[in-house]
């Protein structure tokens, strides 16, 4: 099937989903506001710690705010697009609805991605964006074309990475039926840790989030490049500009895993 046709179909899914959510306007606004508040208080904590301690090694509050804002925007995008995979165990495997998806002449990935476009995630996105814009205005960084494209590239790479993690979580459900909460440590835990520069963490933890789950490649390294500072971990500048590509690679690997997982699917038959 042509890519263009898939995209058109996907766009149709998104439009429908948005229209459905806006039917309950008050509920949508409340949900978005809740997201904004719950994720926003995290930054209150970051601010208070800087207020108390002044600096975090060589890092200042606006610098950490770039890490914070970027990963929150990124995760909000991935989270909004991946509801179908996130709820996969509960909504599709347990109920046996996945059988229906398999019968349709379109890829399962397209159908699950189109399950819902979670508009309420805009709450997290907006608070991340506010922090990011504030940091950008305070920091003494020259916003060249290269830097702005690196911001966009790392958001794309990061969204792919988190999307990949959620696809992996859904893949596991082929065997476990239930959605495994443990994967939350990688998604939400990943967001939590990427809000601060990776350089402050224990070396084993850092290696895990670089080589196993390439989270540092979509947050830490590009942000160092955006800030234009010397990396305490010693990465060269060209790597900082290339690193977000690992997020896209990670997603591709997860989708291959997904296709392989489908072969092992047995319906619950209900």
């Amino acid at each position: 099937m042509a890519i263009g046709e898939s995209l058109k179909l996907y766009w149709l899914y998104v439009k429908l989903s948005i229209r459905a959510q806006l039917q309950y306007r008050a509920a949508f606004l409340l949900a978005a506001l809740g997201q904004f508040l719950i994720t926003g208080i995290e930054f209150l904590g970051v601010w208070a710690l800087f207020e108390r301690f002044g600096r975090l090694h060589s890092w200042s509050l606006p610098e950490v705010a770039v890490f914070y804002g970027l990963v929150n925007c990124t995760f909000a995008c991935a989270d909004a697009l991946s509801r179908g995979f996130d709820q996969f165990g509960v909504l599709y495997i347990k109920t046996g609805h996945f059988d229906r998806l398999l019968l349709r002449p379109r890829s399962t990935i397209l159908q699950l991605a189109g399950h819902e476009f979670a508009l309420r995630r805009i709450g997290r996105f907006v608070q991340g964006l506010i922090v990011l814009v504030w940091a950008a205005s305070v920091l003494n960084v020259e916003w060249s074309v290269a830097r702005v494209s690196l911001v966009l590239f790392s958001i794309l790479g990061g969204a792919c990475l988190f999307f990949g993690l959620i696809v992996m979580q859904a893949t596991l459900a082929f065997w476990t039926t239930e959605t495994l909460e443990i994967m939350n440590t990688l998604t939400y835990g990943g967001v939590e840790s990427a809000q601060y520069p990776m350089a402050i963490y224990h070396v084993a933890f850092r290696r895990f989030f670089t080589f196993v789950v390439p989270l540092a490649c979509v947050s830490y390294f590009p942000v160092v490049g955006i800030l234009g500072i010397a990396d305490p971990l010693g990465s060269p500048w060209w790597f900082q500009y290339l690193a977000p590509a690992f997020g896209i690679l990670f997603l591709s690997a997860c989708l291959v895993l997904w296709q392989w997982g489908i072969k092992h699917y047995t319906s619950t038959g209900s």
Partner: peptide
């Protein structure tokens, strides 16, 4: 699952706070 999540979370929090204390 909750136990593993809480431990992981605790570890992240500890490392962040420890970094602040180490620098101050």
């Amino acid at each position: 699952a909750g136990l593993v999540t809480q431990c992981f979370w605790g570890a992240i929090r500890l490392m962040i706070v420890a970094a602040f204390y180490a620098a101050s």
